[in-house]
Design a binder for these strands. Structure first.
Length: 909
DNA sequence: CAGTGAGCGAGCTTCCGCTTGACTT
């Protein structure tokens, strides 16, 4: 039986829509995008690999043509769709009606190559009438919208894959840059810079409790000093971040300090007051719009303490099980049936007096909203109350939040009165003082009865907060029950949290609902940002990277870049602009802008050292922080005046704004940073400690303060079998006993010693060395064994000794036998001339001669091995420093990883 | 930032946005 095949994006959606369409339709999902640019070299088709732009998979020389592949994990799914299509007589592409959805539809068309009629079907709410109407009114794929999506995709690829390598070279291997993540990182860094520049201002005022007399309710009420002799008393917002009064406040306000405040309290001891004015204004507040992705993430963070990613995965489960509508949306629109459901629930639960006469409509506040979905709301044509769902735990709490917000969004405004009362009096010293009291009374709670939004600032008043004031009138006499001075300090701008950073990104039109949570993960995974409680703190690494990007890619990391890009994409989608032209301008530049490619190729010299240096405590202190390969450290002048004579480690988790000069002095006093005390050496009595050094973890002895300057403490790297967490004094003593004298060569009387070095354990006899196979041999190798090793030639000995792991037969091209070997970089196949490393999916067990021939052919296509190797060696020899950077950054990375693990462990305990 | 002695098949890292399982712990 032939059927009509409908393809949507999400499996859960497919199930629901399948139910609406019924017989004759098969509804399947694409599970998101089905094709993409290859994400690594292993996925890049061989035919474009050799092109100069092969790494990008975008032909930048020829109209920016993208080369798409079906990712490995999507291949079987595509096969399934093809099978379903075989028996279909019509195909409906029902992906989301936004830029990405249109592109998915086009990719499906291009990949499935259907021979039957194809329709593009769109809908914005998943209700039976909407779906049935959509089937009846199909359209064609909008090619301009697809063009806009491809432009977006290609731009992001070019940005990410051109700028990231600059960071690998100049900062650290493995780092990344991108249109979204680099701006997100910059926001966090900029906020920290503001905090570092911030200077606190201290100011005082008076707080009093006043007595309106026994016939008033409430009788007592609080008020604050508002003005003295007509000049308003300065409050926090009158001060700038430099700690001084803002120019707009100067001459208008009086800055009360402690002395003045305390003197005033004294002078007001016997003052009586009269009501100078009573101002009453109506208070009215409308409900919040239903949830979209970002507002849900914010509220779940404030009220349930959920991270953005937890919120999304809990919401995903609710969605899959039919409790809520789709959770990745930028729309606040409710379908007609949802409005009805909310309204009937309002009537049932709160009564008709809470129901507005007509439904409320929420227009989107998000500038680049694509509105492919509804708001996030309880699913269905009638809402289940949380109790009716049978949900528990996190799912229950998140559902409850969504349900309450949705119901509240269709309730009446809250109304009431806000009142401001001014009390005047004269001090004993002749000043005219005015106190101010503000109050708010809510006479009808409306939606606030169902839902009150949380606040990010704990001291901020909630929307339903009430303060009642007595019903005073002008001229009434009031007495002060108590007046006291109270000091305040201005606070630096708060760090971003996940939720506030996401909000900021959305406000700036950066990122999409499906990516907000993963943006945070990216910048945390890269080591740019870490979480301290809920706050996002930038690592010094982020300062280096941000500075590089600001200096050399100012347009690309500007906060306006994405918004500008969105405008251009809209023009492309409208058919007014051309994709290749716009990408050409972005990549190669124009009279107006500098192109990305130009910027990358003409970078010039970037002084990596300067880039990673940040003065501490002003430029004159001589002390600066440097981001080294092993983490941040301080450098400063020593007693002899050597400007870099003093150094000290900076803990990875010390927030940059806490690194003051005082803190620096403290760190200089204990430059090594964390060390683990292992105990005393039984012979020398010296304290033995374990530390992390630039070559990894090691143990050393602590020399007494009165030891001669020339004395060097013994040291020893931990063996691979040991770790800083588990190393014992016994281990340390063993390590410090090295080098061990193995014996004397009877031939020439030279001493043979065993020790641990850069390349692992080895024997040394004068300037002649031999590697040892295991670290254990350091302590066990005998003179006979040592002499046997020395009897063998130095270089070839080991290489010849290592037998091939597997023999595969002869290569069809060279005719030479092919074997699998294990080398420095892992397992590889070789025909004697060419060597090719096994890829991620190859194993020694599974590899065949055919696969080996494939790998060797690929390798051969890149040219002779010796030539490239030599060139590499020459380069390395010329720029020794650079080579060192490359090797060591790996160490740094793993060290950082370890540090993170340790931190996490510490938090747990 | 602890201070040491080779000579060897390199090859890969990375973007943003759409979507879920398949993994392991």
């Amino acid at each position: 039986m032939a059927h009509k095949l409908v393809i949507v994006e999400s499996p859960a959606k497919a199930r629901t829509i399948g139910g609406y369409l019924g017989e004759g339709y098969v509804v399947e999902s694409s599970i998101g995008h089905i094709r993409d640019l290859p994400n690594s070299a292993a996925d890049t088709p061989a035919k474009i690999k050799d092109k100069p732009w092969g790494r990008l998979a975008v032909d930048v020389e020829n109209g920016f043509v993208p080369y798409y592949v079906v990712p490995r994990d999507k291949k079987s799914h595509i096969a399934k769709l093809k099978t379903l299509l075989k028996d279909a007589d019509e195909l409906y592409l029902a992906t989301d009606e936004d830029r990405e959805g249109e592109a998915i539809a086009w990719h499906l068309l291009d990949e499935l190559k259907p021979k039957v009629p194809v329709h593009r079907m769109v809908f914005h709410e998943i209700t039976k009438p909407a779906i049935l109407a959509a089937v009846e009114n199909p359209r064609q794929i909008n090619d301009d919208l697809v063009e806009a999506q491809e432009a977006r995709r290609i731009l992001d690829r070019l940005y990410g894959y051109e700028v990231s390598p600059v960071l690998w070279k100049k900062v650290m291997s493995g780092l990344s840059a991108g249109r979204v993540q680099s701006v997100a990182t910059r926001l966090v860094v900029d906020r920290e810079r503001d905090r570092m520049k911030f200077r606190v201002a201290s100011y005082w005022d008076l707080e009093g409790t006043f007595d309106a007399g026994s016939d008033h309710d409430p009788r007592m009420f609080p008020a604050k000093l508002h003005s003295v002799d007509g000049a308003r008393v300065a409050r926090g917002s009158d001060f700038g971040s430099d700690g001084a009064l803002k120019s707009s406040a100067q001459g208008k306000v009086v800055h009360v300090d402690r002395t003045r405040a305390e003197a005033l309290v004294e002078a007001l001891r016997d003052t009586s007051y009269d009501v100078r004015s009573v101002e009453s204004k109506p208070y009215r507040r409308s409900p919040y719009a239903p949830f979209r992705t970002t507002t849900l993430q914010q509220e779940a963070s404030r009220k349930l303490g959920m991270s953005a990613s937890v919120t999304m995965s809990v919401a995903q489960r609710l969605y899959e099980n039919g409790f809520i509508t789709y959770m990745r949306t930028d729309s606040t629109t409710l379908s007609g049936s949802a409005v009805n459901a909310a309204r009937s629930q309002v009537r049932e639960l709160y009564g008709a007096e809470y129901l507005p006469d007509s439904p409320r409509v929420y227009a989107s506040k998000v500038k680049n909203a694509q509105e492919a979905h509804e708001a996030i709301r309880p699913a269905g044509d009638s809402f289940r109350t949380p109790a009716q769902t049978g949900l528990t735990g996190e799912q229950f709490r998140l559902y409850e939040l969504i349900w309450m917000r949705t119901v509240a969004s269709q309730m009446k405004d809250a109304v009431g009165q806000s009142v401001s009362i001014r009390l005047g009096g004269a001090s004993a010293t002749g000043e005219d003082v005015v106190f101010s009291a503000t109050g708010r009374v809510i006479t009808f709670h409306g939606f606030l009865k169902a839902y009150v939004e949380g606040t990010d600032d704990a001291s901020a008043a909630k929307d339903d907060a009430e303060t009642r004031l007595p019903a005073l009138t002008e001229g009434d006499a009031v007495s002060a029950a108590s007046v006291s001075a109270s000091g305040h300090e201005t606070k630096p701008p708060a760090r971003y949290t996940e939720a506030t950073l996401i909000k900021e990104l959305e406000d700036r039109e950066i990122g999409r609902p499906s990516t907000y949570a993963s943006i945070i993960k990216t910048i945390v995974d890269r080591g740019y940002v870490y979480k301290k409680g809920t706050a996002l703190v930038p690592a010094w690494l982020a300062f280096s990277v941000t500075r590089l990007l600001e200096d050399h890619f100012p347009r690309q990391v500007s906060y306006e870049f994405t918004a500008g890009m969105e405008d251009v994409l809209d023009e492309i989608a409208a058919g007014h602009k051309d994709r290749a032209t716009e990408l050409g301008e972005f990549y190669y530049g124009s009279e107006r802008v500098q192109g990305l490619h130009t910027l990358v190729t003409e970078l010039g010299e970037i002084d990596a050292r300067e880039l990673a240096t940040f003065p501490i405590g002003g430029p004159d202190s001589g002390i600066h922080l440097r981001v080294g390969r092993y983490g941040p450290y301080l450098e400063g002048p020593d007693e002899e005046g050597n400007p870099t004579g003093k150094r000290a480690n900076v803990p990875d988790d010390l927030p940059p704004d806490e690194l003051t000069l005082e803190k620096a002095a403290e760190l200089f006093a204990n430059p090594a940073g964390e060390e683990i005390d292992l105990g005393q050496h039984p012979d020398t009595g010296l304290r033995i400690v374990a530390k992390n050094g630039r070559f990894g973890p090691y143990v050393t002895e602590v020399l007494p303060d009165d030891a001669p300057k020339s004395a060097r403490p013994r040291t020893g790297s931990l063996l691979k079998s040991m770790s800083l967490e588990t190393v014992t004094l016994e281990d340390a003593l063993k390590l410090l006993s090295l080098p061990r004298v193995v014996g004397v060569d009877p031939e020439n009387g030279e001493e043979i010693t065993a020790q641990n070095g850069r390349y692992g354990p080895y024997l040394k006899k004068g300037s002649d060395s031999r590697s040892l196979a295991t670290e254990e041999q350091l302590f066990t190798v005998t003179l006979e064994e040592a002499l046997a090793l020395y009897a063998q030639p130095k270089q070839r000995g080991r290489a010849a000794a290592a037998p091939p792991l597997k023999e595969l037969g002869n290569d069809p091209v060279s005719g030479q036998p092919v074997v699998v070997k294990s080398g420095r970089f892992g397992e590889y196949v070789t025909d004697g001339e060419y060597n090719a490393t096994l890829r991620k999916d190859d194993t020694v067990e599974s590899i065949t001669i055919e696969r080996a021939a494939e790998l060797l052919a690929e390798r051969r296509a890149r040219g002779p091995a010796k030539k490239t190797a030599k060139r590499g060696a020459k380069k390395a020899a010329k720029k020794t420093t650079k080579k060192t950077t490359g090797t060591k950054s790996t160490t740094r990375k793993s060290a950082a990883k370890k540090a993170t693990t340790k931190k996490a462990a510490a938090k747990k305990s």
